[in-house]
Nucleic acid binder design. Structure first.
Length: 274
DNA sequence: AACGAGTCCTGATCGC
DNA sequence: TGCGATCAGGACTCGT
């Protein structure tokens, strides 16, 4: 599922190809994934607009348009955003097709439809609650000192649950939460309030490390994820715990265990993570 | 406040 | 071979 590294990879892939391109036509838009505005308003607002510099905030892709609107895409679990030649066959579950003046098409595909598409002025989207508040991003300078001295540090929630909270750290999902906890040698069930200052520092550093390493490998592909050109990433091979329940811990050799924490399958080493 | 449970959804996988 | 059950989970809602 696309988390921060996968979304970042897509954004970096698409950015140079979209910048300055005119959105010639909305070939199709599925109202089921378009959260705002209506399909007709979307068409009127989008057609003719020119793409600015593509950006990312947490797991959200932001495409500023010359009209002042932002085209915002969240990929959910199975979403892909790819640039293809218009002649390429349109795959099933393609919910948005934007024709560019370059002859290429920007296509959003999402079999499970957990993702969403928004269009409008950012302030408006935010005020309408369509863009939720996000915490600091592990790739950003503002992440230094995370998580600060706020209520997170005294929370009784499991640290795994805290990592999945986008308001605490933007862009972290189930895969990289487990990877960061493993790298920081912290047990996912630990109440957040039980972590020492140095353990928080270790966890923050681990988040940044696992995200950067996954970006270097162009993201984790084990099911639906594809980069901006439809290719797979290579980070799956380097995962230490996610998807490795029952397999030996690469550090101590003992079997990794799976537990359900915060409603998510969580894999960790009972020996190495305390 | 914070937790679990339910919801949305399709495809991969498994047991029979 | 086929079919039903199960599982995967991001973000949201609802109930406790």
């Amino acid at each position: 599922m696309p988390e921060l590294p996968e979304v970042e990879t897509i954004v970096r892939d698409l950015r140079p190809h979209l910048r300055g391109r005119r959105l010639a036509a909305v070939l199709s838009v599925n109202p089921l994934v378009l959260r705002y505005p209506s399909a007709e308003s979307f068409r009127v607002a989008a057609e003719g607009a020119v793409f600015g510099v593509l950006g990312r905030r947490g797991k959200f892709i932001h495409a500023p348009l010359s009209s002042g609107d932002q085209l915002v895409v969240h990929l959910g679990m199975t979403g892909t955003l790819t640039l293809e030649h218009g002649a390429e066959p349109v795959r099933a579950h393609t919910h948005l097709r934007l024709q560019l003046d370059s002859g290429q098409e920007l296509r959003y595909r999402d079999p499970r439809r957990f993702g969403r598409v928004l269009l409008g002025p950012e302030r408006h989207l935010r005020q309408a609650g369509l863009l939720p508040p996000l915490g600091p991003d592990p790739l950003d300078r503002t992440f230094v000192g995370w998580p600060g001295n706020g209520p997170v540090r005294s929370s009784g929630r499991a640290v795994k649950a805290v990592l999945l909270d986008q308001e605490v750290v933007a862009g972290c999902g189930n895969i990289y939460a487990d990877e960061a906890l493993y790298l920081a040698r912290l047990r996912p069930t630990r109440p957040a309030s039980s972590l020492s200052a140095s353990q928080w520092a270790r966890l923050g550093a681990a988040l940044t490390v696992v995200m950067k390493e996954a970006i270097r490998r162009r993201g984790t592909s084990f099911s639906d994820y594809r980069d901006g050109f439809g290719a797979r990433g290579e980070a799956y091979e380097s995962l230490m715990v996610y998807g490795r329940s029952g397999l030996p811990c690469v550090r101590c050799g003992r079997s990794l265990v799976a537990r359900r924490i915060a409603g998510r399958t969580t894999v960790y080493c009972r020996w190495c993570q305390r």
